[in-house]
């Protein structure tokens, strides 16, 4: 399972975390089948999908683990994080609480994996420009503070989903030299600049919860 294997079909485990209905399943479905449905069934427990990604000089198999977001399923999560290479922590840019909670999700991952994991903070639903509650700057600042990667996406509009997975692939252990030098083509999220904050309050300090 180790990421440093030289096997042509190295397998990597990605776990998707985040609050209820922030769009974890939608992001995976967009990536897997390039489609979006307004009405996904809520994920109960855990789901699994895998996809082979063809990169410049090698092929990797991504195993995507989709989890349920409701608070009380949290006790289930650690066993899925345990041997993951990548954790994708998703929030909904129209739901400030889901953004605040990412600190806890990230903490959860760090507790389980320490620094042996690559974490991506993903702000989803950028298509809902009128409802934005978390600015791209806030997302970026938090990612820097917590030392994780950051990207905003819209699974509905298909924005930045491929870019997200390309970034993930590029960051996989043993991949540093392969794609990192080629600047990823990020899809421009022009929509965001004029509508930065609906909620003008400064971001609260990082969570100090001890629970």
């Amino acid at each position: 399972m180790s990421g440093t294997t030289t096997s042509p079909l190295a397998k990597y485990k990605l776990v998707f975390l985040g609050d209820q209905s922030v769009g974890k399943t939608s992001i995976i479905t967009r990536f897997m089948y390039d489609k979006f449905d307004n009405t996904y069934q809520a994920t109960i427990g855990i789901d699994f999908l895998s996809k082979t990604m063809y990169l410049e000089d090698r092929t990797v198999r991504l195993q995507l683990w989709d989890t349920a977001g409701q608070e009380r399923f949290r006790s289930l999560i650690p066993s899925y994080i345990r041997d993951s290479s990548v954790a994708v922590v998703v929030y909904d840019i129209t739901n400030r609480q889901s953004f605040l909670n990412t600190a806890r999700w990230i903490q959860e991952v760090r507790t389980e994996r320490g620094n042996d994991v690559i974490i991506f903070l993903v702000g989803n639903k950028t298509d809902l420009i009128d409802k934005r509650q978390v600015s791209i700057e806030e997302g970026d600042a938090k990612a820097r503070e917590l030392n994780v990667h950051f990207i905003e996406t819209s699974a509905k509009a298909g924005l930045n989903i491929k870019a997200l997975f390309r970034k993930i692939a590029a960051s996989l252990p043993g991949m540093e030299s392969v794609t990192q030098n080629k600047q990823e083509q990020m899809e421009e999220v022009k929509l965001t600049t004029s509508t930065v904050t609906l909620d003008a309050k400064p971001p609260p300090p990082a969570s100090t919860c001890s629970c």
Binding site: Q20, S21, D37, N38, T39, Y40, Q41, A42, Q70
Partner: peptide
């Protein structure tokens, strides 16, 4: 609020429940 997020995601293909 909690349940509301799930209502549209309960058997979304069912004509009555959706």
């Amino acid at each position: 609020t909690v349940a509301d997020a799930d209502l549209p995601r309960t058997f979304p293909g069912h004509p009555y429940l959706s």
